[in-house]
Design a protein around this nucleic acid. Structure first.
Lengths: 351, 351
DNA sequence: TCTCCTTGGTCCTAAAATGTCCCGGGTAAA
DNA sequence: TTTACCCGGGACATTTTAGGACCAAGGAGA
């Protein structure tokens, strides 16, 4: 059967464009909480006047509320957005990309958000929202969730809000691995506690100094408290992690030059939970710290990978080849690159 | 779940208006076979220029074909119209009315066509189309269909076209009852044969003089030929009948003054297949002729009532209260009146 | 208190939509 | 065959709308 939209398109050729436009505006307002007309116009690349015409209409439809402080989304607007999401995805052509990637790597689910999270902070916010939604979709009442650091996962934490129908009081949030040399705000510990607080869940932290010598490492492993929490981490039912570019992560973590050179020699492309992967998804280096082992990751029930930006595409691909992701949340920019790469390798195989 | 249509109504109220407009134009072209721009503009109450803009678009979309003889609908236009019908009904708000009436009288199906068939010949044509569609929806290969007279049912006959997937060669069309004093074109006999010819089915007629005396009646009943056809009529699986205003029918059939006065005294409101009903659906008078008895109607599998126009609302309501309709095909004007009446009686009951 | 950002109002211009008329051509009735 | 009519499409002036650019008043937050 032809979809309703397909039929309508025949009588209203520009239906899709308008739908997309209004959806985008409404969506932007949702993400911004409250926002003024001018600011919104700039961030949407529209002139103030045309935006105004649209917002007037949205207001007339009761989808947004306009006060002298700015515009905010109304309840019915929020509901409408939610209901409209799959449709708009279809129009944006993201459903296609999702299916493509999902099949290529045998994933359980792929979520692609519109835009480029590197270029637009709002796209990044949306990536966080999608990540939060994915997490809430799989979490249940007594889960242990291991989280990594990174700005993307931090954004996920920001966007988390407690689900209405489910108490998560008996959940635990833990960092996936100990100190990895990140700055405080985007450390795994910070994020784990942040998520737990937002969801009313418990959290336990793993305080491990960043640059750990062999001996210190051995002594920490022996500590009963540390041992306890590491045990908990290794039994996590859900892992939610970011994906980074290997070289950039090395730089950000101020790894020694010799290590960086080694990484480069080994062809390290991606980094995630302290492990470095080459283009085939093989681990070529690991940071010396406590927490999840590779084997734990392989046996974890749900691994959620979240990343965005065109430049992350290669890294995401590498981690996908590692082969233990279940749910992938990325942005349009990365998705397009990844699908291109899939197609290239397919045509190579066909030769 | 909210339908995609409701969401669109919220976000694209203006486009829904346009959709309605274009649908109406396309629909009108369908009903008119070929029609010129000016004529169409008049019948749609639009100025020539705006209509032209629309038809240009419809042409660009390949939904109509414009030749120097006029405009006609294309195949894809025809298909689109068919597919779009429920959607437009929803936008017109007719779905609501349909459901309302269907539930109030426990009918199997209610079809409402837009417009007022008393005011616009095209609405009447559409009523005929809908009636024809309803008939084709229930008919199967060896049915006997009893039809009444009247201009509405005549229009149904006009709009019938053989279904592609079903041979009706073994169907029979018969008049529901003998001569009732209608003019030739809208007599049941004429219509039955017309329908049969259009569908490639058989027909048998019942020639009974209009004003039948008691004795003549008795002798006719005894005639074996007449008896045969009456038997067939009484076994009809489908009845398709119009509904008329009692007084108007009495006038049209030139009933004697005394009879008319009796009818008025009894509160006769509606007429159908030669029976007169009061506002509670009680039969207060019947014409003396052969054919279907009341008991036959009650036991018939599918009774299809078709009527239109604001002034018919009361009559339709009376026949509905009689309580043996299965499928009702009416126009918007009548439907609105009927629903109003339903609401009035509901609020009376609530007091 | 002051500054910044908000909405809602206004004005003006360009552009699009619309009302109106006409022309050449083909159809169908006379 | 002729004639009268209706057809689509072209043309054009006019109206309406959309869009761009500002501005004033007001409230929130620093």
């Amino acid at each position: 059967m032809r979809t309703i939209l397909e039929m309508q398109k025949q009588l209203l050729p520009d239906l899709m464009e308008i739908l997309k436009k209004r959806y985008t505006i409404l969506h932007q307002i949702l993400l911004s909480d409250v926002i003024g007309r001018r600011t919104l116009a700039v961030s949407l690349n529209m002139t103030e006047r045309v935006l105004r015409a649209e917002t007037d209409l949205l207001k007339a439809q009761g989808l947004i509320e306009i006060e002298n402080i700015g515009m905010r989304i109304s309840d019915s607007g929020r509901k409408l957005l939610e209901a409209l999401e799959p449709i708009v995805k279809d129009i944006f052509g993201l459903s296609n990309l999702e299916e493509r990637i999902q099949k290529a790597f045998g994933l359980r689910k792929v979520v692609i958000v519109p835009g480029d999270s590197e270029a637009s902070p709002l796209a990044k916010k949306e990536l966080g929202r999608a990540g939060a939604k994915a997490l809430l979709g799989v979490i249940s009442s007594k889960d242990v969730v291991a989280v990594t650091g990174g700005s993307t996962i931090a954004e996920v934490a920001e966007q988390l809000s407690p689900p209405g129908n489910l108490s998560l009081k008996q959940c635990w949030f833990v960092p996936a691995r100990g100190g990895l040399g990140e700055s405080l705000e985007i450390q795994a510990n910070t994020i784990a506690s942040g998520m737990a607080k937002r969801l009313g869940a418990g959290y336990r932290l793993l305080h491990v100094p960043d640059l750990l010598g062999k001996e210190a490492y051995e002594s920490l492993v022996g500590d009963p408290n540390i041992h306890d929490i590491v045990e908990m981490i290794r039994e996590a039912r859900i892992i939610i992690h970011g994906i980074g570019d290997a070289m950039e992560m090395a730089r950000r973590r101020k790894l020694e030059d010799s290590v960086v050179q080694d990484l480069q020699k080994e062809g390290a492309l991606a980094e995630s939970f302290g492990y470095y992967f080459d283009e085939n998804g093989v681990v070529v280096h690991k940071m010396l710290t406590l927490g999840l082992h590779l084997d734990d990751i392989k046996s974890t029930e749900t691994v959620i990978g979240i990343a965005g930006g065109k430049s992350k595409a290669k890294a995401i691909l590498a981690v996908l080849k590692f082969g233990h992701e279940d749910i992938l949340v990325i942005d349009e920019a990365a998705a397009e690159e990844i699908v291109e790469e899939i197609e290239r390798s397919e045509s190579r195989r066909a030769e």
